[in-house]
Nucleic acid binder design. Sequence first.
DNA 1: CTGAAAGCGCTAACAT
DNA 2: ATGTTAGCGCTTTCAG
Lengths: 342, 342
Amino acid sequence: MKKANITIKDIAKELGVSPSTVSRALKDHPDISQETKNQINDLAKKLNYQPNTVALSLRQSKTNTIGVIIPEIAHFFFSAVISGIEDIAHDAGYHVIITQSNESFEREVMNTKALFNSRVDGILMSVSRETENYEHLQSLLDYDIPLVFFDRIIDSLNACKVIVNDEQGAYEATTHLIEQGCYRIAHLAGPQNLAISKNRLNGYKAALADNRYMIDDNLIKVCGLGTFEEAESITNEILDYRFPPDALFANNDVAAYGAMMAIRKKKLRIPEDIAIVGFSNWRFSSLIQPALSSVTQPGFKMGQEATRLLMKQINKAEDEESITETISLKTNLVVRESSKKI
Amino acid sequence: MKKANITIKDIAKELGVSPSTVSRALKDHPDISQETKNQINDLAKKLNYQPNTVALSLRQSKTNTIGVIIPEIAHFFFSAVISGIEDIAHDAGYHVIITQSNESFEREVMNTKALFNSRVDGILMSVSRETENYEHLQSLLDYDIPLVFFDRIIDSLNACKVIVNDEQGAYEATTHLIEQGCYRIAHLAGPQNLAISKNRLNGYKAALADNRYMIDDNLIKVCGLGTFEEAESITNEILDYRFPPDALFANNDVAAYGAMMAIRKKKLRIPEDIAIVGFSNWRFSSLIQPALSSVTQPGFKMGQEATRLLMKQINKAEDEESITETISLKTNLVVRESSKKI
DNA sequence: CTGAAAGCGCTAACAT
DNA sequence: ATGTTAGCGCTTTCAG
C-alpha cells in the first residue's frame, strides 16, 4: 500500500483555504494569522507533508545542487576532496551530484552537459588527463555558471582555482631534513614534464640554496617510470656513492617506499642512518610506514575551500563584478619519528 | 555578457510554430513532417538548446537521480562503492547525489528526508554506526521509494540488500594456506561483538574442520584494540610458542601489518617461514605489502550490484509484486608471492 | 500534420 | 488576512 505524496493543494483543500495561504503559512509569513498557521502546520505534520524540491527548483530557477566532475572517485585524494565538498555544501543546504570522467575527455564533456541540463547552481571540477580542448568549459563560463577548478586546473581559463603549493611543500620537507642536521640530501624526482614534479624539485633546490647547501646534480635522480622497483634500484645506486646521502626527499610515496626497501636491505636504519621524507596521498601511510615522514596534500581542505569559493560566486549578486580568486593551499608535513638530532 | 538559456518557447517563437511542435520535433515524433523537424533541429543546434531537466522531472514525476547515503566518503571501501554506483547509474542515464552521515544518526535522518524531498527515484544506503531506530527507513518503504542496502544492512527491513560473504572469504583464505602446505595456522581475530569478525572466525574454523585440522584455541587470538602494536605483541607471543604456527590469517590489514612487523623483527621470512593472509581494504596494499596475500572486499562490484538492484526496482511496473533480493558477494583472494609449496 | 490548453507543485505579484 | 492568477519549462491529450 503505497502512501501518496501530500501537496500543498491537498492541505489547502482539506482546510478549505487557498494553496497560497498554505504556502505562506508553512514559511511563517507575517501576513498569515497565527490561528490558520497553527491549523496548517498541524495538518502538515499529521500528513507528513514534504515539500517537493523539484517544483521549487523550477519555480526559482535554483536547484540548490552543485555538480562535481572528477577523474576518479576511488582515489584517496579525490575521495577526501569529495568529503570536503559534501561537508561545506551540506552546511550551506546544497546537494552534491558526483560524476567521474574516468580520465576520458568525451565523458567529461558529457558530464558537463548533463550537469548543465540539470541546472546545477555551480560546478566544481578537476579536469581529466585527456582534456586539451576547453570549449565545454568556456561554454559554462559563457552561461555564467559558477565554476571552480581544483587540483587539475586550466591556467588559461578565467575561473576560480584551488591548488596545492607543491613547491612550498617540498621546500618545507627539505628544510625539515636540514634542520634535523642532515647534510647530504638526495632527491628522487618525478618526470619533469609534469608541473607538479618540477615544482617539487624547485622547492627542494630553493631550500638547499637558502641554507647555503650545494646543489649536487648527482643527488637528484629522476624516476621516470614511477614504479617502486625503479626507485629501489636508483636508491641503491646512490647509496653506493663514495659519499652517500644521509637523507632523501622523495617526489611521491612510491619512490619513498622503493627507497625504504633499498635502505632496509642494506641494513641501514631509518632515520638514524638516512632520513626520508616523501610526498604522499596514501591515507594509511602513517600506519603503514611509521618510519617515514611525509608531506600530504590537504584533500579535504581543498574540497572545502573550493566549495566555499563556489558558494561565494553563487551568492554574489547578479550585477556584482565576479572576481576570480586562486587559492594555494599549504601541504602538511607529518613527522613520524623522532628526529636525528635528538 | 551572460548567455541566456534557450527554451522550447524561444525556438517556437522564432520559427512561428507552437511549443508542442518543437517538443515533438526534438524527440523525433512521427507526426511531425521531416521539413519542420529539420528546421527545428537546426535552430536548436544553432542556439545550443539544452533541455531543462528540472522541468522534465516535475512533469514526469521522475528525476533520473538516485541518492546515496554512506557513513564516510573518504574511506577506500566506500569510495570504491561510490565509483561502482556511478558507473552503473551513468550507463542507465541516472545522476548520483552523494550524502554522508559521518556515522551520525541525526544526520542520516536529515539526509533521507532531504533525498526524499528531492524526489530521487531511489536510494542506496549503508547505515551509520549509531542507527538503531529505523523509522526513517521504514518511512521510505511506506512511500514505495526503491531502497537498497549495502554492506551495513538492516536485517529486519524488507528491502534489497548487498553484502560481502566474509565467512566464505575467510574460508577461502584459510584453505589457501592449507593448500600451500601450512599445518599450523593461527588466526588474529577481531572483536567478537562485530558480526564481521565472528563470520571471519567461523570461516577460518570451517576451513580447518573441512580439512580435518585440529582447532587449537591457543592459535586464535582476539585483537580487541585494533592497533597494530597490539597485533605485533600478540604475534610475538604466538611465535614464542614451543610449536609456533607456520601461517597466520589476520582479521584485517592492521593486524596483518602488526604481524608482519613482529615476524620481520624475529628475522623470519614471509612466506617461507610463516605465511600471512589478511582481510584488507587498503587500496595500495599490493604495492605496500608485496609480501602479504590478502582478501579484499569488492567495493566497486558492491556499488554496481546495489545499483543494478535499484534500477530493477525503479523500472518495475507499478503493480508488479516487488521482490526483495539479497546478494552476497564473494571476496577476492589476492595472492602476492610464490607459494610455499613451490 | 499542427495547435491550444491543461497541469506537474510551488510561489509571488497583485488583487480584495 | 486571504484569495486569484500567472508562470517556471516541458509534455501530452484532445481538437482541428
